[in-house]
């Protein structure tokens, strides 16, 4: 393992570069998402080497919540909800990559999409490795909590 600060400073630089390298935000988000996809896909491959194939979608999602999230953030997803029709809502009450962003409740500019888009890609990439294609969206709640929704 390596120091968290090392990764976080690097992450800030990476996001900064990608945001500046594209003319519009939407394109940059797409790029971040794609990078996350690649990383998640490869990471989960190594994590699940000894896990038998999942027979159900729910099992794969549980793997993401527990094993995958734990490997990344040393904590599992706090809450998993599903409508049993293929929509899952994962919430992380203290999403690490938002912990050190200053949070001003009075500010009008609460957009930190760029710091989360990569994580959406990670989930997508991991799920795709299990053979499930999904769309991941997110919602920011107060106090650095983050909810991922996917279909």
């Amino acid at each position: 393992s390596i120091a968290i600060s090392c990764f976080e400073f690097f992450y800030i630089e990476m996001v900064d570069y990608l945001m500046k390298s594209c003319q519009d935000k939407v394109k940059a988000y797409k790029k971040l998402d794609k990078l996350g996809f690649k990383v998640g896909n490869r990471l989960v491959e190594r994590l699940s080497i000894e896990t038998p194939l999942f027979t159900e979608l729910l099992e794969a999602v549980k793997f993401i919540c527990k094993v995958f999230w734990f490997a990344l953030f040393k904590k599992s997803i706090d809450n998993l909800r599903t409508n049993h029709k293929g929509v899952f809502v994962l919430s992380d009450k203290q999403f690490q990559w938002l912990q050190h962003l200053s949070y001003d409740p009075n500010s009008t500019n609460k957009d930190c999409t760029e710091y989360i888009q990569f994580a959406c890609g990670l989930i997508k990439g991991a799920m795709s490795n299990f053979g499930y294609k999904c769309t991941v969206t997110f919602e920011l709640l107060q106090n650095h909590a983050c909810m991922y929704k996917f279909y």
Binding site: A3, I4, F10, K38, V39, R42, L72
Partner: peptide
């Protein structure tokens, strides 16, 4: 210091 999975770092850097 607090630590993180180095594979995440390695793969992200590579990407």
């Amino acid at each position: 210091v607090e630590k993180i999975n180095s594979e995440l770092f390695t793969l992200t850097y590579g990407a």
